[in-house]
Amino acid sequence: MRFSGKSIIVTGAGSGIGRAAARLFASEGGSVICGDITAAAEETADMIVAAGGAAHDIIMDAGNEEDVIRAVAVAGEYYGGLDVMFANAGISGGMANIFDTDVALITEVLRVNLIGPYLAIKHAAPKIAERGGGAIVLTASVAGIRSGAGSPAYSASKAGVINLAMVAAQQLSGSNVRVNAICPGLTETGMTKPTFDYARSADKMDRVGRLNPLRRGAQPEELAKVAAFLASDDASYVNGQAIAVDGGLSSSHPVTKQEYGKTAV
């Protein structure tokens, strides 16, 4: 029960990693504000309550400052304050290259994926500090580490999130508020659903995630567990870090693969 007595906000809680994290936080005693831009936030909260947990849903745009302020206020209203912020909401922005991407699209991706986490830090950190400290976890991506895992807009936004975690950790020195990021690899979420659905229908699941050493994609619960670790006191000395959770994909530059137990030719 790592989150007993803790008040937690999860953005993007309507599906994928956000929903899995919200349910995990609640199962370990946390009281969760489930934020999402869709009514799926209510579905997540209902799941938590049905399982005996504490949750409240809120419709919010994670890249809108007024909505973020309201979410933090709701945490105070329902649960007396805030201990953990999981700024998880994000959008993909498609896969167009630099020359075919509209500026309006890049602007929207940056608004949600980068300004959203910035707003989460700006408004959550002071409230968390008031409670004696806690944690902020941001969802970045392996696409923010190097090229090859997302569009230019998405990749740039997630690189910004990684750096934002580092800068925020420094600027919150002495507050006892830790800021870290998770960098998911290919994970089965609403964003990647078409890829996984196609692979299953075409009997090609063996090709999903084949470039990482574990040779598979991840499930949202696997990412949620890492987010929960970073949000908990188990990670009390982890700060300003970006943790890749990608099956080992980002551990190597492109090379010819060698099968385990076989001699390279």
Rank of each mutant, 00 (worst) to 15 (best):
I58E: 06
L110S: 01
G185Q: 04
M85V: 01
I121Q: 03
Y79H: 12
R200V: 14
I145D: 00
V68F: 14
S173H: 12
S236F: 08
D203M: 11
L186H: 01
L110Q: 12
L230K: 11
A135Q: 03
A73Y: 04
V10T: 11
I106L: 14
S236M: 05
R210L: 03
G261H: 06
F196D: 02
V84K: 08
R111L: 13
T192W: 07
E188S: 05
A231S: 08
G35A: 15
Q258V: 15
A202C: 07
S151C: 06
Y237S: 10
I145Y: 01
L172R: 06
G81C: 09
T263E: 06
R70Q: 06
I9D: 12
L211Y: 12
D67G: 09
A168I: 00
S147C: 10
D100P: 05
N64Q: 14
F25H: 05
S173F: 14
L105N: 06
T101M: 08
A50I: 07
D246S: 00
V161P: 08
A156G: 10
G132V: 09
T187Q: 13
M95G: 01
F99D: 07
R19C: 14
I59C: 12
V245M: 11
Y78N: 04
A224L: 10
K225N: 14
A227P: 14
M191L: 14
A55D: 02
V161T: 09
A13K: 08
E108G: 02
A140N: 09
D57R: 09
V142R: 01
V68H: 04
D102T: 07
M191R: 09
L164H: 03
A71M: 15
K122Y: 05
R23N: 12
R70E: 05
S15Q: 15
T11C: 05
A71K: 10
Q219Y: 02
T192F: 05
A165F: 06
E221N: 05
G144M: 04
A231L: 04
A153R: 03
L172T: 04
P152T: 09
R70M: 03
E42G: 06
S92V: 01
R216Q: 13
T256P: 00
I243A: 14
A71I: 07
R146M: 11
E28P: 04
G217P: 03
K257T: 07
S252A: 05
V109D: 00
N180Q: 08
S141T: 03
R146Y: 02
A169N: 08
D57F: 08
T187A: 11
R200W: 02
M191K: 09
A149Q: 07
E77K: 13
G80T: 11
G18P: 11
E259T: 03
V49D: 00
A22D: 01
S175H: 14
A89I: 08
A228H: 01
M205V: 02
T44P: 12
A120Q: 07
A149I: 00
D197K: 15
L249F: 11
K127Y: 00
